[in-house]
């Protein structure tokens, strides 16, 4: 639940998602759900020449289970807050992202 909440606070930020099939997509995070499925807008594929099928795609839905990494904008992540939240445990009531 904690990571889901972190992603929710990052909506409308630019993120880069690297998939397990080595496709990397940069785009604006539009939404995320409980499975960490990700919706990206205005996408840009790194190494587009290797992935020609993505050229006509402007926004996409990525299934959470195929994501390897998500690169986050560090200026929008409070790692201190995350550290504290992790220590406190992640029951929905005790962490700071759900008001």
């Amino acid at each position: 639940m904690l990571i889901f909440s972190v992603f929710k606070t990052l909506t409308d930020q630019q993120v880069t998602v690297e998939l397990k099939n080595d496709l990397s997509i940069t785009g604006v995070l539009k939404s995320v759900d409980q499975f960490l499925n990700i919706r990206l807008d205005s996408i840009k594929v790194l190494d587009e020449a290797r992935h020609p099928h993505m050229m006509a795609v402007k926004n996409c839905f990525i299934r959470g289970s195929v994501v390897r990494y998500v690169q986050l904008p560090s200026e929008h992540v409070d790692t201190q807050l995350l550290e504290d939240a992790t220590r406190r445990g992640s029951s929905p009531r005790s962490h700071p992202f759900i008001g």
Partner: peptide, 22 residues
């Protein structure tokens, strides 16, 4: 079946026409 899906992309029909023709 969902487990086989990697990515679902919306195709921009205008963009599709503009792509240097394959």
């Amino acid at each position: 079946r969902g487990e086989n899906v990697v990515l679902l992309g919306e195709i921009d029909l205008d963009l599709e026409d503009e792509i240097p023709q394959r």
